[in-house]
Amino acid sequence: MAYIFDSVRTPRAKGKEGGALASMKPDELVSNLITAIAQRTASDIKPDALILGTVGQVGCQGGNIALVSKFRANLPDSTTAFSLNNFCVSGLTAVSQAAAMIDSGQAEAVLAGGVEMMSSVPFMADKADFYTDRSLPLRSRYLLVALAADRLADEQNITRQELDEAALRSQQRTKAAEDSELVASRIPVNGLDREECLHVGTQASLASLEPAFGGAAKYYKEILGKDIDHRHTIAHAPPLSDGAGLVLIGAKDAIDAKPRARIVACAEVGGDPAESLTAGIDAMEKVLERSGLSLNDMDRIEYMEAFAVSIVKFLRDFDVSPDKVNVAGGHLAKGHPLGASGAILLSTLLDTLDVAKGRYGLVVAAGASGIGSAIIVERLGE
């Protein structure tokens, strides 16, 4: 059985030149979090493995960023280190892999999470052939996620007003969470101690914004299959950002500290690539089935706000109280450092469970082209 001894995250910074973390290297962010975990657990951490999710594995994030981070943090030579790319769910997939290593006896203690410095490695900086390869079957060709979101909103008849309401709720909750126990596991880095991307609008200011992604539709029209009503504005898209999240996972007695939670179940799914963002729901349903639990059993849920349509569809289609979901705000307000986001969501979930003194929590994440991941944890209490 795999236990979470701690889960920490950096604040999210603007992913551009001049952002609060832009002067740092990704391995420095990870090293800061490793130091924080060691201090918070009062443990001499000697993990069997370090697993990091990172999407843009070029430049400062290339050369096996997990290995570079191992060296930066002075982890033991015996610690194996590897990096993975599972698009936007990478950080959560890293945690699932770590849990599997613990459960199978391959490791006693693992550090897992993700890092992304979009100020240094912009979106699609790896220039993969996949992004433009027209020899693939039409339904599995890469579609810009913003356009997949617009198409989903159009097909599901999710209105502009619903998108605006989701963005405003995320912003207001993020602001309310600052300086509270809801950010207890967020570690200040480089002088940044809050979410740099946050801007709180109003209903009127959000309603005044124009749709932002229709200009890209011409190139992707063959994949889209039809003209669509573009509804997502920049407020409905998570800001590009820098950030990292890290989780210390181990067997029950592997670390000389009390675990915060146990991992009840994990699920990784491949979904319909043409539907793109709906695989998170597939992963959620799979992990609930594996655990024998229901959404009603969940005291807190972190559902990745991969564009506003995702959270609107979830809250519309499932019988779950909005008061349990993303109570500290979400991606729309804080930003989305691609490979780090899943681990950041898990850290946030543990904080929200602590505040609520809840038992069960769920993280759901989705990525482009039909990628989904979900994890259920049980908080172990005082």
Rank of each mutant, 00 (worst) to 15 (best):
R12E: 02
N326I: 14
E178L: 07
V309P: 01
E165Y: 00
D227W: 01
D323K: 11
K25E: 11
A20D: 05
A244I: 14
R12M: 07
A125M: 01
L168D: 03
N157G: 02
D351M: 06
K175W: 00
A267G: 08
K286P: 00
F5T: 14
C266S: 15
A274M: 09
R12W: 06
L315A: 09
P337G: 11
K286R: 09
A98V: 01
A283W: 05
S23T: 15
D44Q: 11
R12G: 04
V325S: 15
H232K: 05
I37K: 02
D6N: 11
K313S: 13
M124N: 02
D154K: 08
D317I: 03
S140Y: 06
S23C: 02
I34H: 04
V115N: 03
V8A: 00
F82R: 02
V189T: 10
A100Y: 05
T159G: 05
F130E: 01
A274H: 14
F82K: 03
G358Q: 05
Q172E: 10
K252E: 12
S310C: 15
A333C: 07
D256I: 03
A2D: 03
E155Q: 12
G56N: 13
Q97L: 10
M24V: 12
A306L: 14
L147V: 05
P26F: 14
L144D: 13
D253W: 07
A149I: 12
G91L: 07
E162S: 06
K324W: 08
R139L: 05
S241N: 11
S90C: 12
A283S: 09
Y220S: 09
L380K: 07
G15F: 10
H236Y: 08
G18K: 08
A207G: 08
E178W: 13
V145A: 15
G372T: 14
T202D: 02
E28M: 04
I255S: 02
C197Y: 01
R290S: 14
S96P: 01
L192E: 00
A333T: 09
D154T: 10
N190C: 07
